[in-house]
Amino acid sequence: MTTTQLDQAITLGEVKLRISNLERSIRFYEDIVGLKLLACSEDGQSAILGLASGDEAGAKTLLVLEEIPNAAVPRRRSHAGLYHFALLLPERKALSLVARHLSSAGIPIGQADHLVSEALYISDPDHHGIEIYADRPRQEWKRDANGDYVMANAPINWDSLLAASGGEYWGGLPQETVIGHVHLHVSDLGTSRTFYVDTFGFDIVGDYKETMQALFISAGGYHHHIGMNIWAGVGASLPPRDSVGLDYYTILFPDADARKQLLDHLRSHDIAVTEHGETAIVHDPTGTQIRLRYR
């Protein structure tokens, strides 16, 4: 499917999470994940994390945390919302360094060779899923007869991955790290497909409804910017606002005109759009908030 309303050069921006203990989460995301604390609010209830550089203008925000007093922590897969957000590393050696670091930290690590990428999976203290991964070269990605990317959940060659970094030292995530994709629990794959594909303009790159009750979509031929599943159950609702969970994720456009083209298209299809300065906000059919900005 060729889209016109969604610019094919979109990328993903920061993710905001509601968490139960800000100090604990900052420690985790700095010491375990490798992000840097960029700023804290004056009231001590929220923080911005990302990648620092030599000057303030070069800092990159990847994660926003907001502490919810007395927050409930729902059971895994009990609500719609975040399954995981994914940090994309620039190369396999960086993933190797992360693997060494996580192993030495002694935390549970999931892992998978997806053929298009190699991925490590961990959870933060509030059970938010985190994927840290590195892509294989695009020329190695394969599609099946339906045009879906061929993906798998095979074991990583652990010895090969660890060997890729030799004896180098892990010093946090590299500056080139970005939010590669988000994977969501949705309430219904059909209505989500209508919104994200038919209206929003994403391309289907993995229709796995029959095999794993999931749908992968992207722009620009990427293996997926957004994954969706119904593993929390058809009709699952978002957790209450006073519990931990995903607050929003961000789509970044190359310029203001590219975003305006989509916003005009969404409004023509009666999708509610709210604008706050340079940020536009829409909600998907499950209720997940999406922030639309331009770089």
Results as ranks from 00 to 15, higher is better:
residue 69 P to A: 05
residue 111 Q to I: 01
residue 169 Y to G: 00
residue 33 V to P: 15
residue 88 L to R: 12
residue 196 Y to R: 14
residue 99 A to W: 06
residue 72 A to R: 12
residue 9 A to C: 05
residue 263 L to R: 14
residue 155 P to N: 03
residue 104 S to Y: 00
residue 234 V to F: 01
residue 205 V to D: 05
residue 283 H to Y: 05
residue 96 S to G: 13
residue 16 K to I: 04
residue 31 D to E: 14
residue 177 T to G: 08
residue 192 S to I: 02
residue 184 L to W: 05
residue 117 S to N: 01
residue 78 S to T: 00
residue 82 L to N: 10
residue 112 A to D: 02
residue 221 G to S: 12
residue 79 H to R: 14
residue 91 E to K: 10
residue 3 T to V: 01
residue 187 S to P: 06
residue 273 V to A: 00
residue 295 R to C: 04
residue 68 I to F: 08
residue 255 D to Q: 13
residue 263 L to A: 02
residue 101 H to S: 14
residue 22 L to F: 06
residue 101 H to F: 04
residue 15 V to A: 08
residue 4 T to D: 10
residue 239 P to E: 00
residue 22 L to N: 06
residue 147 G to F: 00
residue 142 K to M: 08
residue 133 Y to W: 00
residue 175 Q to F: 10
residue 200 F to C: 03
residue 78 S to E: 04
residue 183 H to Y: 09
residue 196 Y to W: 15
residue 62 L to Q: 12
residue 128 H to Q: 02
residue 258 A to K: 15
residue 130 I to H: 06
residue 13 G to T: 04
residue 279 T to L: 07
residue 17 L to N: 10
residue 110 G to D: 13
residue 154 A to S: 08
residue 87 L to M: 07
residue 166 G to C: 05
residue 81 G to H: 03
residue 211 T to L: 10
residue 141 W to V: 11
residue 277 G to R: 11
residue 120 L to Q: 09
residue 205 V to L: 10
residue 162 L to I: 06
